[in-house]
Simulated scan of single mutants.
Amino acid sequence: MHTMTSSPLILASTSPYRKRLLERLGIPFQCVSPETDETPRKNEPPEALAARLADAKALAVSESHPLAIVLGSDQVAARGEILLGKPGSIAAAQKQLALCSGESVSFYTAVSLARGGKVIARHCVPTLVTFRALTDRQIAEYVDRERPLDCAGSFRWEGLGICLFTALESTDPTALEGLPLIATCDLLNSQQLGVLQN
């Protein structure tokens, strides 16, 4: 990956997952930490939260890099009214997966572009994941083998986590990894930063 400071594109993230996904497009970019508060507001719907945080990340970096196009992204997972964040510990991951066992969980992955301190484009991709009925032993084995402690919902679908599901519904499977590449391509094309130029 090119990391030139003259790159017109900045990923407002230090997530290795989003960095790896964006690298697939072969466009030069650099990563800058957005340093944003990700606390949900009272009664904020998960889709609105994802969009607001994607905007906030893009804007935070855009203010200090006004000439660049800044890409911000955020993902929010919810089982009904319960938000599922990054577990951070083995016990929390096991608890989250037990909560999801046999249930459907909605993931909302938003991507925003900002330039000159203003949001210029945004898209949010919903994904519905249906979990198998999991035993405590299956949950413990999965968490021990994959250690998904930095993943919303406590799994990595691109790895062993796919075994936890009976179904996955989305217009863009990369959204579940943290950056919807189909939507990202559309947004970048609109700013003449596309992979495949006309």
Rank of each mutant, 00 (worst) to 15 (best):
L11G: 00
C151D: 03
L25Y: 01
D150H: 12
T130V: 12
L21Y: 03
A110F: 07
D74V: 08
M1P: 13
R137Y: 10
A167E: 13
N189W: 10
S101W: 08
V76Q: 12
Y17C: 00
L84S: 04
A77Y: 03
H65C: 10
A58V: 00
M4T: 14
C185V: 10
P28N: 02
L84V: 10
L21V: 02
P28W: 01
A152W: 07
I162N: 07
I139S: 04
A48P: 00
A92E: 10
A110G: 04
P173D: 08
L149M: 09
A121W: 01
M1K: 14
G88P: 02
R156V: 08
S106K: 15
E63K: 14
P40Q: 04
E23H: 07
C100K: 06
A78C: 14
G26K: 12
G116S: 00
N43T: 11
T171G: 09
V129R: 09
L9A: 01
V195W: 11
F131E: 08
E177P: 00
T174I: 08
R52G: 05
Q192L: 14
G178Y: 00
P8H: 05
I10N: 03
A91V: 12
R122T: 12
P148E: 10
E47T: 07
I120Q: 02
L128E: 10
R18T: 07
S15W: 08
K118S: 10
I82Q: 13
R122V: 09
L149C: 07
V70H: 02
G178V: 02
A60P: 05
G80V: 11
D55V: 01
A48R: 10
I120L: 09
R24V: 04
S64F: 04
F131S: 05
Y108V: 12
N198V: 11
R137P: 00
A12P: 01
E47R: 15
A140M: 06
T3H: 13
A78P: 13
T14Q: 15
G178F: 11
L99Q: 14
A93F: 08
D144Q: 15
N43E: 15
Y142A: 06
L99W: 05
G117A: 07
S106P: 10
R20A: 15
I69Q: 02
P126Q: 13
P40G: 01
L179D: 01
S73Y: 04
L128F: 01
L160I: 13
P148R: 08
S104A: 15
C31F: 11
R52W: 06
A110I: 08
K118E: 14
A121S: 08
A121L: 00
V70F: 02
C31W: 09
I10Q: 03
A12S: 03
T166S: 11
S170D: 01
L97T: 01
G116V: 06
S13H: 03
V32K: 07
Q96C: 03
L53K: 07
V119N: 02
H2I: 11
A175L: 09
L187P: 00
A93D: 03
T5P: 04
P46F: 11
I162V: 14
V70N: 02
D144C: 13
G161E: 07
G26H: 12
L113F: 00
L187T: 01
G80C: 08
D150G: 06
L71E: 06
R79Y: 10
Q138H: 12
F107T: 12
H2G: 11
E35T: 11
V70K: 05
L84N: 11
V105R: 11
L25G: 02
